[in-house]
């Protein structure tokens, strides 16, 4: 049973199987998906009305958002909330703490790649089970701006995938801090609060005061939500799309690379200090 001679296609296949496994793992929790969808929708309705009220009192578009793009901003945000893992995960942290991470090191596969695949699967089922129903509901209840072109749809889809990867890569690094810290709950909380604000979940990043917008722009957080939403809501078009995707790609590369460095350091710590 020799490993096949073509590492590339097989690695892709392995990755794909792990994506599918992640999809199935998370699809077993149907009730959680339904509950998530309901919560996302209720908050979607509230947030949409708040934003519409703000726009009505301003009497004009704010930061490039008119009524229908603002509605699209809210509903895409609600839809992607479960897809992009903004609040983070604890699986890797738990495995580091219990020492089960050693099992991951006993496999002929990079753990970061394995967890990324699993997270993409999780994102997939959340998009289908939670995100798309929320979008349909939003479009049904409000005057909703659909993506203006086929390009926006396609680029939006790519941007969503990149957003999932950015959020995963960031959280993976946070999880790995468990190699050095007994308790990472504080850091996780800080990440959640900062991320929730700067990713543009509560308010569109263009509405931020200058100083906060500057901070957000230099952080990876808008790449997790604001950027795909802007493409899908049609606020960013044409050359702006390319720039937006390039920024996301930068964060994907930077955070995955950071994850590799931290993973290696963690492994060395395990090797040196004991499991």
């Amino acid at each position: 049973m020799a490993p096949c001679a073509c590492p590339r296609p097989c690695l892709v296949k392995t990755f794909w199987l792990l994506v599918r496994a992640g999809f199935r793992r998370h699809s077993t929790y149907r009730l959680a998906l339904l509950a998530g969808m309901t919560t996302n929708s209720v908050f979607g309705i509230i947030r949409a009305y708040l934003l519409l009220a703000a726009l009505a009192s301003a009497g004009a578009a704010i930061g490039g958002y008119d009524a229908s793009t603002a509605v699209a901003f809210v509903w895409w945000g609600q839809a992607l909330l479960g897809t992009v893992n903004l609040w983070g995960f604890s699986e890797v942290k738990d495995r580091v703490r219990t020492g089960d991470i050693a099992v991951d090191f006993l496999r002929p596969l990079d753990p970061q790649l394995a967890y990324l695949a699993g997270d993409l699967g999780r994102a997939g089922i959340n998009l289908i089970g939670r995100g798309l129903p929320a979008i349909l509901l939003g479009a049904l209840l409000f005057d909703f701006a659909w993506p203006p072109s086929g390009l926006s749809w396609a680029a939006g889809a790519v941007s969503v995938v990149l957003a999932v990867v950015v959020a995963f890569a960031g959280n993976f690094v946070i999880n790995l801090l468990a190699f050095w810290l007994v308790e990472i709950r504080g850091i996780t909380l800080l990440w959640m609060i900062t991320g929730g604000l700067l990713c543009g979940l509560y308010l569109p990043v263009p509405w931020f005061p200058d100083w906060l917008r500057t901070i957000a722009t230099w952080s990876p957080f808008p790449s997790m939500l604001q950027q795909p939403i802007d493409i899908l809501a049609g606020r960013v078009v044409g050359a702006g799309i390319a720039t937006s995707l390039a920024i996301q790609l930068f964060w994907v590369t930077a955070l995955l690379a950071l994850g590799q460095v931290v993973l290696r350091a963690g492994r060395r710590r395990l090797e040196v200090q004991g499991g």
């Binding site: 490993p3 690695l11 199987l17 496994a21 050693a102 099992v103 394995a114």
Partner: peptide
């Protein structure tokens, strides 16, 4: 092949069959 009696290498919330499928893929078996 290693088994640590106290640790699991299987996917907890998936049917057993899937764990074997994933592991076969990880080891790149035909």
């Amino acid at each position: 092949g290693v088994v640590f009696g106290q640790r699991s290498q299987l996917w907890w919330d998936l049917p057993l069959r899937e764990s074997f499928g994933i592991l076969a893929a990880i080891h790149r078996l035909e």
